[in-house]
Design a protein around this nucleic acid. Structure first.
Lengths: 166, 166
DNA sequence: CGCAACAATTGCGCGACACAATCTAACGAG
DNA sequence: CTCGTTAGATTGTGTCGCGCAATTGTTGCG
């Protein structure tokens, strides 16, 4: 438990710590999913809609089909989802002048405001949690979070492309 | 950018780093939700069912009504969800000998196996990500993840209890 | 011995999603 | 220039999960 450990001991602790981190993540994820659902319901939309609004915010405006690929929905479901988000005033359909088949979906200022507003509670808590860490530690956290995000993206791609039961 | 900074400069960097972490989290969450949905579909159940199975795994067996409270569903929906999970062989209903009204839901070994199996991909990636950090850094990560999990739990409680539009 | 309270389960309607068909627009071949 | 093909978005149709309310079985209290 001291700071100076042999490599073996350190490896043991290392694995134990890593396992603890990995074990805590699902508990965290479970709660985050709950939060997303609760926030979406408050916005008068479904969790998927909120997810879509997130995707628009993060990766920028996109057409319906591209958006369908991002959130993992069929084009038909995406079209109706856009209807709901548009009715809620969160997104707007912008026809593409260059190609009249394409219709770009972009979030409205109101839609983006709602994301930050409804997320404010969790954001504040997270900032509070981060206040306990110094600069170097924050860099460590950022490095991990970014790596975990990239891993999650890779895992989504794998699950999407791989055949079921394989 | 050097290691010796005035307090003001350090605070600036600090806030910037914290903001980066906070900003990255939603992107991560979005992917994690996707993964949960994809995994659930592969298991032949809905995302909510998988969520419920998680809750059983984390907090132990529970009755239907308690479970309903954990996952945020009505008792009726919970009952049918248990039907689906039972059909899939992931949980079993165990009558309480002491109170014949109560029926305890507990995950089967097969159900727990499926969680670890389907999560194996992401778990492996996460372990790979964590391999880049030393012991002290892992402690930092663990501390943050646990704090974030607790904050998420607190936020769920807040959103549940608070009135809509407030 | 009723009678209220509790726990789990169904009857019912709403709505989100997948699948397939439809419609418009752009592109390419002759 | 015209027609067939492709791409993109939308709309019928069915399925199914969920919330709400009523029902059944069980416990405990007066």
């Amino acid at each position: 438990m001291t700071k100076k450990q042999q490599e073996t001991a350190q490896n043991d602790v290392d694995e134990s710590l890593a396992a603890q981190v990995v074990g805590t993540l699902p508990e965290w994820i479970t709660q985050l999913i709950q939060i997303n659902t609760l926030i979406a319901n408050r916005m008068g939309v479904v969790a998927t809609d909120f997810h879509c609004l997130h995707a628009l915010h993060q990766d920028g405006p996109a057409t319906a089909s591209v958006l369908a690929g991002r959130v993992g929905l069929t084009p038909g479901s995406t079209s109706r989802m856009i209807d709901r988000l548009a009715d809620a005033g969160c997104v707007k359909r912008v026809p593409d002048p260059g190609d009249r088949r394409r219709i770009v979906i972009e979030p409205t200022a109101e839609g983006l405001d709602r994301i930050t507003t409804y997320y404010a509670g969790l954001t504040a808590r997270t900032h509070g949690d981060l206040a306990d860490f110094d600069d170097d530690q924050l860099r460590t956290l950022l490095r991990f979070v970014e790596a975990a995000r990239d891993s999650a993206i890779a895992e989504v791609d794998r699950l999407r492309s791989a055949q079921p039961d394989e």
